[in-house]
Design a protein around this nucleic acid. Structure first.
Lengths: 229, 229
DNA sequence: ATTACTTAGTGTAAAAAATACACACTATAT
DNA sequence: ATATAGTGTGTATTTTTTACACTAAGTAAT
């Protein structure tokens, strides 16, 4: 067989860092591995790129196969290419992140035996991760910190209808610090991407907060602006 | 021979987008290719990652081999992984950028026959580039635009001693718009990363401007701040 | 030495944005 | 009726951004 140029010189994989928000906690999606190396360890959902797929397509497919999730918009943020990062050989990994609302609804179900299970885990209780996945996660968290300062993007983590306090909670969790309530609300509303609903929070044993929803049309115009709290 | 896991599934390459500033022009470093495909075309300096090198190391080596330049700090900014981007097979390319002062001093000399020559070319007169390199360049330019708004980083493009007007010229070229002189100076000096020298510009046939130099120590403290003009 | 030329260098007022800060309201549970 | 817990609101101060035009200094030509 004639050698094709250029010659393959690496395995290329995808790793996905998915952030979710639920019950006041910032969570991340992990799988429990069912294959060597790092069998039985927790790891980021990841696998090899397909030869006939773009890396973006691979990312979607791999996430789906390992967790059952589909139609998740993920964004590439960095490529990890240290020589020793995979114990069995050269693997260069392209990392993606996404932010995601957790309804408790969708069950996570790996479609391959490569993962035993997939689970949302509180970022404050991260287990030891296989490979260099702790590092990949750390970089992903840095990335979304910068990201939510630029764009009011945290709605991706919330249900369709949400309260301003919920939005503030997400910001505080991601940024790791408290924000002033009045200033936060003023600023958030000033973006003009939230629509106030004629509807109140339900099932709480205190004054119910007003619900809002996110206006994607107006949101699209916001690119390039910086937010600071 | 036993198959090693994971299996190589792609060629991985590096492409370098180097910006330089000289004689009032923003330039980019290109090579003229000496190999198929795109023989005799202009292209970004790029080649395959070595199997025993990190992608960062590969980037430095490849830049050196194709242009003779060394000790250039480059930053990774995106990985291009569309299926059809290389006509001869699957190649995923990790792109790096750098900003660089051009002294006219260092000659560019490819150390391999893979490039016929390397040359700094005005970004306003870009030739047609091979592969998807126009796209990679466009993304690189976007990246440095965002970058110089965040950090007063344009000094990398300037000689050790420079005038404020030179700094402003660089900003205007990269951002593609005129800036107000008084506001620019006020802002730039307010960062406190410039040291005014007891020295004036030489060899000009008009009032000589004060020279400044860049203070790396103070600069290191600036990360995270946003600049806007 | 006068003049013309070219770039350097400077300040202020107005508008906009960011920050700091505290209490009354309202729904529920008992 | 009362206790409780989170909701929702305004203003004054400071900081940052923007807009804007002339004089100063050095060189070159006559």
């Amino acid at each position: 067989m004639e050698e094709v140029l250029p010659v393959f010189n690496s395995a290329v994989s995808i790793d996905c860092v998915l952030f979710g928000f639920d019950a006041g906690e910032l969570k991340i999606l992990l799988i429990e591995r069912n294959e060597e190396p790092f069998k039985d360890w927790w790891a980021l959902p990841g696998n090899l790129v397909g030869e006939d797929e773009s890396v973006d397509q691979s990312a979607s497919r791999i996430l789906h196969e390992l967790t059952g999730l589909s139609d998740i918009y993920m964004e590439q943020y960095y490529t990890f290419g240290e020589v020793g990062r995979h114990p069995q050989g050269r693997v260069i990994s392209v990392a993606y992140y996404a932010m995601l609302r957790l309804g408790g609804d969708k069950a996570l179900k790996p479609l391959t035996s490569y993962a035993k299970k997939a689970q949302w885990i509180n970022v404050k209780e991260l287990p030891k991760l296989g490979f260099d996945h702790q590092h990949i996660f750390d970089k992903g968290l840095e990335k979304i910190k910068r990201r939510i300062k630029h764009l009011p993007i945290a709605f991706e983590l919330l249900p369709e209808k949400f309260t301003l306090t919920q939005v503030q909670n997400v910001y505080e969790l991601i940024l790791g610090k408290k924000l002033d309530k009045r200033n936060f609300r003023k600023k958030m509303l000033s973006f003009g991407v939230l629509k106030e609903l004629d509807e109140k929070q339900k099932g709480v044993s205190f004054r119910a907060a007003t619900l809002y929803k996110f206006d994607r049309r107006k949101y699209a115009k916001l690119f390039g602006k910086e937010i600071s709290f």
